[in-house]
């Protein structure tokens, strides 16, 4: 409420304005409350409790004495934890890089093609997006079946077309298991960056493109000098989401390979390492909640730091339309 032209309402406004402000705040609080409560219960509280757990020593599943940074020291100095941590982190990096190269570059390529509205564009869009809607457990289960060396369709097909020599235990060979898993993941998620990039491309005003073409720019020039710079916000989102997704990766390796990061930790990632350490393997590993929580805390710090820095850096490169 601002002053009116004749000032007649101004005399009443201080009290009324205050109460309205208070009312506004009340409404804001009411609307924000569900989100704040959920966030506090399912994000803030678990993070704080993980931090607390990481500072205690544990006897089985029972908390014993205060350990300070003992669990962190154990994680960084006692074999096999430092090696497992470095190995899992390295695998997360590989997953991130491979996902950027395979999934997101392919997604960008498909988005550029779809943006030209080829015949059946809408059908393609739906097809590319379809795997994203599938349950991850189903995707993992199906691909594990396809890649089974005894019954699986992949090795059988290779044999039929005379490429039997290329048949591999795709999920069992240490050198290729992680790549295989990343490709399954890319197959599932490909539609997502495609749709985001496509939306970004479609948002580029047609007159920019027309003006460039009238000036004699080639299609590649249009793409490189106009579409790509204006696509930067979409790239920021995809890079950040891929980063968070890659470093929080858990479900697919868990569904396909189990909790141990088989074979011989070749598909071990930080999420699995955390879960396995904190809660134990099926019936062969014991819970180590202290060290497990320490891993969770490290993951959280790393994700928040890198995501924030990355977002700031990528934002700077974005170009405003208008």
């Amino acid at each position: 409420m601002t002053l009116s032209a004749d000032g007649s309402r101004a005399g009443r406004s201080p009290r009324r304005g205050l109460s309205m402000r208070a009312g506004r705040r009340l409404w804001l609080a009411i609307f924000l409350a569900p989100a704040v409560v959920l966030f506090a219960a399912f994000v803030t509280y678990p993070i704080l409790s993980a931090l607390a757990y990481s500072l205690y020593s544990w006897e089985g599943i029972g908390r014993s004495g205060f350990a300070g940074v003992g669990n962190f020291i154990r994680l960084f100095t006692t074999f096999p934890y430092p090696r497992l941590l470095a190995n899992a982190f390295g695998n997360n990096v590989i997953v991130f890089v491979l996902t950027m190269l395979v999934q997101n570059l392919t997604g960008l390529g498909l988005a550029l093609l779809l943006a030209r509205n080829p015949w059946g564009a809408r059908a393609y869009r739906a097809i590319f997006f379809l795997p994203v809607t599938l349950s991850l457990v189903i995707v993992g289960f199906l691909w594990a079946l396809f890649l089974n060396p005894v019954f699986g369709v992949v090795n059988k097909t290779l044999g039929i077309v005379g490429l039997g020599a290329l048949a591999r235990p795709w999920l069992g060979e240490p050198g290729i298991a992680l790549v295989t898993l990343t490709l399954i993941n890319a197959w599932r998620w490909l539609g997502f960056p495609t749709i985001v990039f496509l939306a970004g491309i479609n948002a580029v005003p047609e007159d920019y493109l027309e003006a460039a073409r009238l000036d004699g720019a080639s299609e590649w020039d249009v793409t490189r000098r106009i579409i790509f710079p204006l696509l930067a916000p979409a790239v920021t989102i995809i890079v950040i989401l891929t980063f968070i997704g890659s470093f929080n990766w858990f479900e697919l390796p868990y569904v396909v390979q189990g909790v141990s990061g088989a074979p011989n930790r070749a598909t071990d990632v930080l999420g699995l390492l955390f879960y396995r350490t904190a809660f134990g393997e099926v019936d062969t590993g014991l819970q180590d909640i202290g060290v497990g929580s320490a891993i969770a805390v490290l993951m959280f710090i790393m994700l928040v730091t890198v995501s924030t820095v990355g977002a700031v850096f990528l934002r700077r490169r974005e170009v405003e339309m208008g």
């Binding site: 594990a144 089974n148 060396p149 019954f151 591999r168 795709w170 069992g172 074979p263």
Partner: peptide, 14 residues
């Protein structure tokens, strides 16, 4: 089995 490193428990049983 060929490619035994990719053979899981359920496949062994089957």
């Amino acid at each position: 089995p060929t490619g035994f490193m990719g053979v899981d428990y359920a496949t062994m049983q089957q």
